[in-house]
Design a protein around this nucleic acid. Sequence first.
DNA 1: CATGAATGAGTGTTCATTCAT
DNA 2: AATGAATGAACACTCATTCAT
Lengths: 210, 210, 210, 210
Amino acid sequence: MTLASDGRTSRAEAQRTARRQEILDAAVRVFSEHGYHTASVSDVIDAAGISRGTFYLYFDGKEPLFLELLERFILRIRDAVRVVDPDGANPTAELLENVGRVVDVVFDNRDLAVVVFRQSMGVNPEVDAKLLRLYGFLQEMVEGALINGAASGLTREVNAPIVATALIGAMKEIFYRYLVIEPVARPDRTAVAHTLLDFGLRGLLLSSDA
Amino acid sequence: MTLASDGRTSRAEAQRTARRQEILDAAVRVFSEHGYHTASVSDVIDAAGISRGTFYLYFDGKEPLFLELLERFILRIRDAVRVVDPDGANPTAELLENVGRVVDVVFDNRDLAVVVFRQSMGVNPEVDAKLLRLYGFLQEMVEGALINGAASGLTREVNAPIVATALIGAMKEIFYRYLVIEPVARPDRTAVAHTLLDFGLRGLLLSSDA
Amino acid sequence: MTLASDGRTSRAEAQRTARRQEILDAAVRVFSEHGYHTASVSDVIDAAGISRGTFYLYFDGKEPLFLELLERFILRIRDAVRVVDPDGANPTAELLENVGRVVDVVFDNRDLAVVVFRQSMGVNPEVDAKLLRLYGFLQEMVEGALINGAASGLTREVNAPIVATALIGAMKEIFYRYLVIEPVARPDRTAVAHTLLDFGLRGLLLSSDA
Amino acid sequence: MTLASDGRTSRAEAQRTARRQEILDAAVRVFSEHGYHTASVSDVIDAAGISRGTFYLYFDGKEPLFLELLERFILRIRDAVRVVDPDGANPTAELLENVGRVVDVVFDNRDLAVVVFRQSMGVNPEVDAKLLRLYGFLQEMVEGALINGAASGLTREVNAPIVATALIGAMKEIFYRYLVIEPVARPDRTAVAHTLLDFGLRGLLLSSDA
DNA sequence: CATGAATGAGTGTTCATTCAT
DNA sequence: AATGAATGAACACTCATTCAT
């Protein structure tokens, strides 16, 4: 009762955590299908197979639940993206790894990703703030990579902010397409990463035209 | 009442149309500020300065109103985009014109654009269908341009669907940035068009690397 | 529509006021029977014969409704109590008039009085504040009368605050008895006033013992 | 288990009783602070430092708990009040003793008294019945004293029921004042008793006016 | 044509109570 | 005996829509 190592207590805690996760999983399914506003707490508890009261035993309400879902996704994305050292052995490979890891996170959390990509902005100020921080972070990372690339003579000098925004938008749209519009079980992460990077780096023109 | 040439009727109809437009304008303002779900019919009628009943005299409800708003935006976008003849005098200029016209539509209808970009997907199946048709159309146009470009030796051969999706996502994200995150009174349409196209066509690599 | 004297508008407003009053009346009945906490908004709307929505069209909620009820009762009581001029022609008669008017207010608003006497303190801070202000006012009035009475040689010098409190408590208990415990259709206001005053002024001892 | 003299059982029972008392004490604190309706069972178990289940092991619920609290207070008050023999040596002293003992009970059980005085009537029929029996008992005692007093030529003949009610109300209000509105650590019981009695017996008029 | 009072299904949330462990 | 996770009926409140005037 007093020690965390107490068998009975730790088992109970493990059960609690498991139950919480079940509810989170159910919520992801529900939110990804109906969207935050259209989904009701009733939908979540039905999907989770619990009673009304139990839901509020594990979460403080609909909004905190959504916020936690969002937070988890954001953390995973942030963890997937690492600063690329422009003077490293193979910066392009590192870039590809970053993109590949993001692809993994997105397709490992399909429903969650759908929720975030589709309709999160505007849900409420706190949600907006969280998302803006995520996009700000990604923007920074990509801008940094662009500036480093230019500095090390790897890429052209471009309007870094606008191009970073474009790259992020490109990724989101591609993800959305493969998640929702023409769902793919799991795309070849290296293929997606390569296409994105190839498009981003080389553009569409024939080399001779450049 | 039966003849369009009836003076009384046509004047009444003109008034009706004007009133409808006022409501639509008010709705755009309200939806862009609060989002579809958070905005209430009360917000719209308050903004339009009409009574509850009058609203339902002009629209069948909140959702049909939103659908009409969406439809209008979609039509404007579709009108702005024209097929580029790859064998024409200056296909690149035509492409730039297309992008420039889209920029114009978006910034001529800022609020409406915000609503559409931010959180339309998932509002309801009919809305989704409309949006998917729009994106399908844009996708087709861009894919066509890519294939034509490659056929006429103008651009590299690329994975047309994925690159088209990427280009559309890039545009959306840039628009969203300039509409919401760091609002710009009205960006230089040719500058935006050039940046987008330059990025899309030439990529990031230095020419020498290509 | 623009003028308050517009027949149509004023009729509508009269209807609105009437409806409001109906709801207030129903609420008084419900609160006096069940008490604030036990009574539900559903009870009120059932008693008023209106729909859920209509209730919230006229009142901002359960608490504001209760507060308004309370406020109305308090105002009536305050209006009934007037400062007694100790140098007036007949201060005792004025005192009797005061008590009589309070008796009238209480028995003209039986249910409301029951609500206030029985269980209002502790409902919530705002309610408590309102009631404390009422009792403070009554306390002041009675204390003033006691001090004036002593100054003008009419009454003995007494511990004014404690005796004022005692008098107020005595009245409340008597009211409560005749309202709830052994309800009287309408007590003889002068009899009640006289008994109270006689008891208050002369006490229980035989004159000879004084 | 069957015999009270069984050591184990009696120790267990003592523990049980002690635990019960702890819960009762916690409940008094909680109810006096928040009121019956606003206080939750959770508040009580938190204050008592026990688990949810344990609470229901000792009490059948929130209402029975409250009823028991009330019952205990009522018993103490009833024990404090004894019939005054009008032909005894010093009936006035006995009266003073009665009032003094009630003052003691009230201030020895401040929180409990606050709960009872403030908002018990109307909690539910059973509670009301209990309170009405208490007030009936007090009313009887006071009425009896009044009648005896008149019979033995000690006091004036008064409308006994109404005056008894007034006296009870006066006491309650004074208690409430000293418990809640301007709390006094512990009033001088003889002073309070004397003031009450003096006011009750002699009234406010100057002796010469009597 | 215009109004706004009326509606009621639906929402998120609370909390006294039960019961398997 | 003690626990605390689970329950679900009940609550206050919202809002898109209708319709008598």
